[in-house]
Amino acid sequence: MLVDGKRTEFKHIISLILLVVLAAAAVIPLYWMVVTAFQQPTLTVTFPPEWFPSNPTLFNFQRFLQRPYVWRWTLNSVIVAATVTVAQLLVCVMAGYSFAKKEFPGRDLFFWMYVGSMMVPSQVTLVPLYITMSKLGFINTYYGLILPAVAGPFGVFLMKQFMSSLPTELIEAAKIDGCSEWNTFTKIILPLSKPGLAVLGIFTFVGQWNEFIWPLIITNSAAMRTLPIGLTLLQEEVPMQYGLLMAGATFAAVPMLIIFFSFQRYFLKGVTVGALKG
């Protein structure tokens, strides 16, 4: 049964075929990356291409992992993505709670300022941020990589959306029982916001792992690059070795694919909650 409570009709079969074709177009490039990564380097450039490597090899991965700095780039990516995620969660859960449940003068003004700033092109802040960071001596440091990324307004917005659906009565009851503001937050609000934190945490981690333009600008020493920037350094080598590049790309993509398949539900939920409308 394909359709709930109805017989499968001819038009459903047509829909299904169309969907498979469109989905294949989006997924085949990723599949092709993996195939090239496991392919013998000499066979990468032969015709016709093999859709399934007849003689798969780990050679490309071995060569990639023996490159200088590859493990350092991976470590940098882990450090940056993990730290930004933890910091974002702390900062955003507090702000989101305040915007959703507190009624202080100027709240709506502050909130719309946050929302409005999501529409400002990120390139507007690039140059001043770079100058600030270089004045502070943060070029090529973890501070430089991490600090600006924590400030994003999207996390606050997402948490506010989640928190708005929590019952206000609970907070009032805690107040009547003489619970302090801070205890109400840590004992009642935090445990209830776990699903929201999970969604924001996953989005932030994946986003930071994949981030390109800011790490590109703020680092220039080989040791401080993150994985995506490191990959582009390999790409600049002549001649371009696609087997090696695709092995590197697979290496960087697989952790995110694992996260996606483990927490798929949260991703789909996060997309709906994180939109301004709908």
């Binding site: 989006a26 997924v27 490039p29 990723l30 990356m33 994946v206 792992w209 994949n210 390109f212 995506p228 920037i229 990959l231 582009t232 790309a249 960087a252 993509a253 995110m256 694919l257 996260i259 996606f260 991703f267």
Partner: peptide
Amino acid sequence: LPHVTSSVI
């Protein structure tokens, strides 16, 4: 799926 893959990749 492509959304969790870096634009670099």
